[in-house]
Design a protein around this nucleic acid. Structure first.
Lengths: 340, 340
DNA sequence: TAGATTGATGTAAACGATTACTGCGGGTTG
DNA sequence: CAACCCGCAGTAATCGTTTACATCAATCTA
C-alpha cells in the first residue's frame, strides 16, 4: 500500500506538492502536476481516508437512520438521499434500527466519534426528547416524521392536508361511513392524518365514531391492515370506505375484504398512502396519496449539507403530495354515485 | 470535543493508561481504571475513530454491495449480514449499484483507501474478470451469485438441485408443458436453474422447447414476469405450468394470467423462487423455493470475517433450500391429478 | 542481601494526510 | 537600483490514537 510519501519520492517532489496536485489547491506548475499524476498512476496510490479525516476532522459520511428497509416507502427515500449525497461528495451510511431507541443511539454514537458528519432520521417519534442532546451537538435532519420540539430541519409532505384531500375524495364519492385504518405508532404523520380525517368528517357534518378508527401494530404491516380491516368490516353497520394511512395497510385491508367476500371497490372502497409499487401489482389498483419519496430524500440531504457546512437556522420544508385515483375507490353501493 | 489527552489529564494518568483501560489490554490497577472511567464519563469522551483506524490500519467497516434494495430477497440477506456484522464488531456499509460496473468499482474504491476492510458482493455476474484485481488484493465474499473464476469464498443455495426439485414437483403433478420464466441477466443462478429445468425435462422424457423459455429484463421485475407470462400463455399450445426463477416474476406471471382470464392454479400453475413476503399477500399464495436469506447473509459475513483476519483458503458454502407448496400449483386441468 | 521478577505506569514514536510558514529565484516598479 | 511581488515548492507541525520500550518500586528467590 503506497502512501503520499512514496508518490512524492517517485515524482521527485515533496508531499505538500503531491497533496496540492491531488486536491487542486495552491499553485503547481503543469509539468510538476503531470509528474505527480503519473507517479500516482504508477503506484496505484489511493489516499488513506482515515488520515485525511483525522487531519480535517470530518468524515464525509452521513448517516441514514431508518427503522427498516423492507417498506418500499423508505427505500425510495433512501435512494433519493443516496443520490443527492453522492452528488455532494458524501457517502451515505445506512443503518436500520427496528425503531429501537438503543439501536438508534448506537448508530448516532458514530457522530461523537467523528465517524459521520451528520444524520438523517427517517422515522422519529412525535416526542423523542432523548434525541435533544444529539440535536444540539450534531447536524441532524428529520425526514417524513419529526418531533417539533427538537428544532432540527425537517422535510415532509403536508400530512394534514393530504388526509383531508383523501377524505374529500371519499366524501365527494358519497361515502358517509368512513373507517380509518391507522397505527398505534407515535409518528406525527399518524396524528396529523387522524386530525385531517376528523376535521374532514366534522366539516361534512358526519359523525366521528370511535369504533371506526383502528390502531394496528406500530409498523405498517400488511397483516396489521388485514386485521384492522377485518374488525372494521365486521361491524354491524360497517364502513363503506376505509382510509388507510399506508399502502401496506391498504393492501392488507383489500386482502381482508376479499377474504370476507366483499368486493373492492363495489362493496368497500379502500384508499392508501405513499404510492409504493405494490399498489399497481394487483387489481384493484389502489387509490392512494402519492408522496415524492425521492424528492423528500434529496431535499433532506440538501438540508443536512446546509446544517453541516453553514449551520443556518433549521428550516421546515413541505413537499407536494398528490392524490392518485385508481380502481379501489368508487361510490358506495346503493348510492346514485358521482362517478369517478 | 475531548480527546484521550484531556481524559488522561483529568484522571491524572498518561494517555497510555487511558488507552489501556479503554481497550482492556495490559495491566492497570483497579483504582486507576476507576479514575479513568469516571473521567471518560465526565468528559463524555468518545474515541476518534479516524485516529484509531489510522493507527491500526483497519476500519472495522465492511461493504455490502447490492444492485438495489427494492427486492426483498436482497433486504433479507442484508439484514442477515448486518446482524452478524454487528455481533462481530463491524459496521456494515450498504451500497446500491444498480448492477452498474462503474458504480461497483466506485464503491470498491473504499478498499484501497482503507475505508473498509472487506466487501460482500450480492450479485456478481457469472463472468466478471474485472473484479479479479480486487479479489486478489482484498477480502471479498460472493453472496448468492458468483464468478467461479474469481476464487473468492462464496455462499449460496444449490440452485441446480433447487430447480430440479421444483420441476420434480411440477412433473409429479402431471404437467408436461412447462414454461420457464427467466431473465437475460448473467447470474450463475440463472444458468444453473436453467440447467436444472433442462435436465429435469430430459430425465422425464419431456421435450425442451425453445419457445417455452423466456428471458425477461435483466432485473427480476414484476413487469418482466408479467410480459414473459403474457407471451408464453398466448402460445397456441400454451404451457400448463410456469417455473419462474424469482417470486417477483411469479407474481407478475400470476397477474398476467389473471389478466388473460386464466385461473391460477386451475388453468396455469405458477411456481416461484425465494419466498419473499409478497407470495402470501394475495391469493393464490405462491408455491416457491424458499432460500434461507438471513442465514445466507450471516454465513457470508462469517466467511468475510475469516478472510479479513485469517485469510484461509476460499470456501464454498451451500445452504439448504426448501420447496414450499402453496396454492398456485395444482395438477393440469383435464388430468386425473395426483393431488397436492 | 544481591539479583531477578513482576506489576503499574509513563514516554515517545509511529500511522498518513493537510497546510501554515518559509524560501527562493526572477520580474516589476518607482 | 532597491524594494517588492509572485509563482512555485519544500519543511515541519499537527490531527488523536496505539503500543513498544523504558522506568521504577515492591516483592520474591537463593
Amino acid at each position: 500500500m503506497s502512501t503520499i510519501l512514496d508518490v512524492s519520492k517517485a515524482a521527485g517532489v515533496s508531499v505538500a506538492t503531491v497533496s496540492r496536485v491531488l486536491n487542486g489547491k495552491g499553485q503547481v506548475s503543469e509539468a510538476t502536476a503531470r509528474r505527480v499524476l503519473s507517479a500516482v498512476e504508477a503506484l496505484a496510490y489511493a489516499p488513506n481516508v482515515s488520515a485525511r479525516n483525522l487531519r480535517l476532522n470530518e468524515s464525509r459520511i452521513i448517516l441514514i437512520v431508518a427503522p427498516n428497509i423492507t417498506n418500499p416507502y423508505y427505500t425510495h427515500i433512501i435512494a433519493g438521499i443516496g443520490k443527492a449525497a453522492h452528488r455532494m461528495g458524501y457517502s451515505a451510511f445506512l443503518c436500520t434500527t427496528e425503531g429501537d431507541r438503543a439501536q438508534t443511539e448506537g448508530v448516532l454514537g458514530m457522530l461523537p466519534r467523528r465517524q459521520a458528519d451528520g444524520a438523517i432520521l427517517l422515522a422519529t417519534e412525535r416526542e423523542a426528547p432523548w434525541l435533544l442532546p444529539y440535536a444540539e451537538k450534531y447536524p441532524l435532519v428529520a425526514c417524513s416524521e419529526y418531533d417539533p420540539a427538537l428544532g432540527v430541519p425537517r422535510v415532509s409532505i403536508d400530512n394534514y392536508a393530504a388526509a383531508r384531500e383523501a377524505m374529500a375524495h371519499l366524501i365527494w364519492l358519497g361515502h358517509e361511513r368512513i373507517g380509518l385504518v391507522s397505527s398505534e405508532n407515535q409518528y406525527i404523520s399518524t396524528r396529523l392524518r387522524y386530525e385531517g380525517y376528523r376535521d374532514a368528517l366534522c366539516e361534512a357534518a358526519l359523525p366521528l365514531r370511535a369504533d371506526y378508527v383502528r390502531l394496528g401494530d406500530s409498523d405498517y404491516s400488511f397483516k396489521s391492515g388485514f386485521d384492522s380491516a377485518a374488525q372494521l368490516l365486521s361491524l354491524p353497520d360497517r364502513p363503506t370506505a376505509l382510509l388507510c394511512i399506508s399502502d401496506m395497510l391498504a393492501l392488507g385491508a383489500i386482502a381482508s375484504a376479499r377474504e370476507m367476500g366483499l368486493r373492492v371497490p363495489e362493496d368497500v372502497t379502500v384508499v392508501g398512502f405513499d404510492d409504493v409499487e405494490h399498489t399497481t401489482m394487483f387489481h384493484p389498483h389502489v387509490t392512494t396519496v402519492a408522496q415524492p419519496c425521492a424528492g423528500i430524500g434529496e431535499r433532506a440531504m440538501a438540508l443536512l449539507e446546509g446544517a453541516i457546512s453553514r449551520s443556518g437556522p433549521p428550516r421546515e420544508t413541505l413537499l407536494p403530495h398528490r392524490l392518485i385515483v385508481r380502481e379501489s375507490s368508487a361510490p358506495p353501493s346503493g348510492s346514485p354515485g358521482q362517478g369517478r
